[in-house]
């Protein structure tokens, strides 16, 4: 379908504890692409988060700094956090990036699509895992 993933097209995934242990794609994510995605305003992370990204002038402060994320979270935990952060905290303001149901009045251009594709989630997970200090 040209208009992108529909509800029944989301890659199925299995939650174990607070993780999604299996990659959503068959190939591993690319941390360089993941970095570019996290820094792009359209991906939205940087609206709320800050991080060790000296070239980004405007970063948000609604959410924890992403510095050191890889020290504290496994790839499986990061994957579930990105797919559906509301599983950790039902009141969180962090959007669920791989979900397309239970939403209200989604804009025409975004209807039925998750915010990020499975491949983009994997790229970002791969990048976040490198944020160690």
């Amino acid at each position: 379908l040209a208009c992108g993933a529909r509800a029944d097209e989301l890659v199925p995934y299995k939650i174990i504890g607070d993780t999604i242990p299996q990659s959503l794609t068959d190939s591993p994510g690319d941390p360089a692409r993941g970095r570019a995605l996290v820094l792009a305003r359209t991906t939205t992370c940087i609206l709320c988060h800050s991080g060790p990204f000296p070239e980004v002038r405007f970063q948000g402060d609604l959410a924890p700094d992403l510095k050191g994320t890889g020290n504290w979270w496994s790839a499986g935990q990061l994957r579930l956090r990105l797919v559906d952060a509301s599983r950790f905290n039902p009141k969180t303001i962090m959007p669920s990036y791989y979900r397309n149901d239970g939403l209200v009045r989604v804009g025409r251009n975004f209807a039925d699509k998750p915010i990020l594709s499975a491949a983009e989630i994997e790229d970002i997970v791969a990048f976040l895992a490198t944020l160690r200090d």
Partner: peptide, 26 residues
């Protein structure tokens, strides 16, 4: 109070709970 849109945020999430913070630079 109603969350809406693909980002699933309500007016109150920003304007009651997070005023005085910064959304990117703003």
């Amino acid at each position: 109070m109603q969350r809406e849109g693909q980002l699933n945020l309500a007016c109150t999430n920003c304007h009651d709970d997070n005023f005085d913070r910064r959304l990117a630079g703003a």
